[in-house]
């Protein structure tokens, strides 16, 4: 076996820091709205919209539009696929970091 071969690449969708931050925040709560995600991740509104759209397209995040009184509220939840992808990513990175001491 060739020891110099690169490790298997991580899931690029999760590996991007902005999307990883969104997934990590959603893994810590049951559900959250857009403002909470911007507050916790430090992402701009534009970046957050773009990242959540990609995560929704990959079925990692479920997005639900609702109204609280007359105020629109978009609720984000991590799906089972998203939870599994995040766990797989954590395991992968722990393995990579472990292999370099």
């Amino acid at each position: 076996m060739d020891d110099r071969r690169p490790p298997i690449a991580p899931n690029r969708l999760v590996h991007e820091p902005g999307r990883l931050a969104v997934l990590v925040v959603l893994s810590a709560v049951e559900e959250a709205d857009f403002l909470f995600l911007t507050e916790q991740t430090g992402l701009t509104k534009g970046n957050l919209s773009s990242h959540t759209a990609k995560l929704e397209a990959a079925a990692y995040v479920q997005i639900e539009k609702a109204f609280v009184g007359k105020v629109p509220r978009t609720i984000y939840r991590l799906t089972d696929e998203g939870t599994a992808a995040l766990q797989e990513y954590r395991d992968h990175m722990a393995g990579v970091l472990g292999s370099i001491g």
Partner: peptide, 18 residues
Amino acid sequence: MSDRFDVAGIEERARTAG
């Protein structure tokens, strides 16, 4: 986002926000 990416810190902040 800051230059330093602290996954554990982000998770902890979100978990304890309440």
